[in-house]
Computed example of a mutant assay.
Amino acid sequence: MRHVALLVPAEWDPQFYELDATRDMLAKAGIAIEPVKWDAVDDDVLRRVDGVLPLIAWGYHLDPGRWFDLLDRIAFRRVPIANPVNVLRWSSDKSYLSDLEQKGVAIVPSIFGHGEEGDALLARARQTWGDVELIVKPVISGSADGTYRLERGEAMPDGLSERRLIVQPFLPSILHAGEQSLIYFGGSYSHAAVKRAKPGDFRVQPEFGGSEEQIEPSAAVRALADAALACAPGDTAYARVDIVMHGDTPCIMELELVEPDLFLRYAPDGGSAFASAIAAMLSASA
Score class of each variant (00 low, 15 high):
I56S: 01
D63Y: 09
G51C: 04
L62I: 10
D63I: 08
G51S: 04
D69S: 15
R73G: 04
L55E: 02
D63W: 06
D50N: 12
R66F: 02
H61M: 06
I56F: 12
L71D: 09
D72H: 11
D44L: 08
F76M: 03
L53V: 06
I74N: 01
D44I: 00
A57D: 11
G51R: 07
D69F: 10
A75H: 07
R73C: 04
H61R: 07
W58C: 01
R48A: 10
R48V: 12
R48H: 10
R66E: 14
D63S: 13
I74Q: 01
D63P: 02
V49H: 11
L62R: 15
R78S: 13
I56W: 13
R48K: 13
R47A: 14
D72Y: 09
I56H: 10
L55Y: 03
L71I: 04
D50Y: 02
V45I: 15
F68L: 15
R47I: 02
L53E: 11
L55V: 03
R47H: 10
L55S: 02
D50R: 04
D72N: 10
R73I: 08
P64V: 13
G59S: 14
F76E: 12
L70P: 12
R48C: 07
P54D: 10
L46D: 07
G59N: 12
L46S: 06
D44Y: 05
W67N: 05
L71K: 07
G59K: 12
L71N: 09
F76D: 11
I74R: 00
Y60M: 03
G65D: 15
G51Y: 00
R77Q: 14
F68M: 14
F68K: 05
G65I: 12
D72Q: 07
P54R: 01
A75R: 05
W58A: 05
L55W: 07
L53S: 05
D69G: 11
H61D: 15
L46V: 02
D44T: 12
L46A: 05
D63F: 08
F68C: 05
F68D: 14
L71H: 07
V45Y: 01
R77W: 08
W58G: 02
D69Q: 12
I74E: 01
R66I: 03
W67K: 06
L70M: 11
L55T: 00
V52M: 04
L55H: 02
P54T: 10
P54I: 04
R77M: 14
L62Q: 15
R78A: 13
D69T: 15
W58T: 06
D50W: 05
P54F: 01
L55N: 00
V49R: 04
L70K: 04
R47D: 15
D50G: 15
V49I: 09
I74V: 14
W67D: 08
V45F: 01
R73V: 07
D44C: 00
W58H: 00
G65H: 14
G65S: 12
